[in-house]
Amino acid sequence: MINNDDLMAEIKKFRGKAIAIPTMTGSRGWLDSSEQPSRDVSVGGAMGKASNFAMGLALAQPDTKVVCFDGDGSLNMNLGTMMTIAGAKPKNLIHFVLNNGYFSVTGGQPIAAADEANFSQMAAGAGYAASYEFDNIEDFAGKVEEIFTAEGPIFVHIHSVPEIQNEPIGRRTRDPRNRSTNDAIKDLRKELGTL
C-alpha cells in the first residue's frame, strides 16, 4: 500500500509544468502538496468525469503534460473512459487511479468488486500505450521518471492507503486550497491564455 503523501512527493519531482486534474481522494493528496495551484483543477462536480476532462485538455494542449488523479469509485462510475482515452490516444496524458477499495469521501463503503477487479489490466486491455501497477513506493519511485517521459496515454494503478472521511459534507470545512472547479478553471484559463 502506498501512502498518498509519499506518492505525491515522488510525482512532484517530475511534474514540471504539467497540469494536474485530481478528483475525490486524489484531490486531497495532491492539493496538499501542489506548488502550482493555478495549474490544478479539482473536478468534483461531474462524478466520474475527471479523466474525460483531462483528456479533452490534453488534446487541446498537446505540448503540455496532463496528469489525472482518478479515484477507484470515480473510475468505476465511468469505465468507458478507458476505451475513449485509448481510442483518442492523447500522447501527453497520464491517468492515475488511486485504488484504496473504498468510497473514501462518503464514509468508506467498499466499491463494487474491490477485491476482484484490476484496473491496470483493464487499461492494458483497453489499449493504453502503457499500463503500470504499484503497491509500494520504492517500486513507484524507480519508475516515475519513465512514466513522465513515455508517450501516452499512460495508465498507473496505485494501491493506496484508505483515508476515510465520515463527516457529512455540510459539516466539513473546505480547505482553501481546494477551490471550486469553476474558480480553478478560471485560474487555469488565465494561466494558459485561453479565457
Binding site: A46, F53, M55, G56, L188
Partner: peptide, 17 residues
Amino acid sequence: GREAETMAIAAGVIVGG
C-alpha cells in the same frame, strides 16, 4: 462510450483553448 463523456471532454477542450 457514453454520451456524458462528451460534455466533460468538451469542457477540457474549451479550457485548453
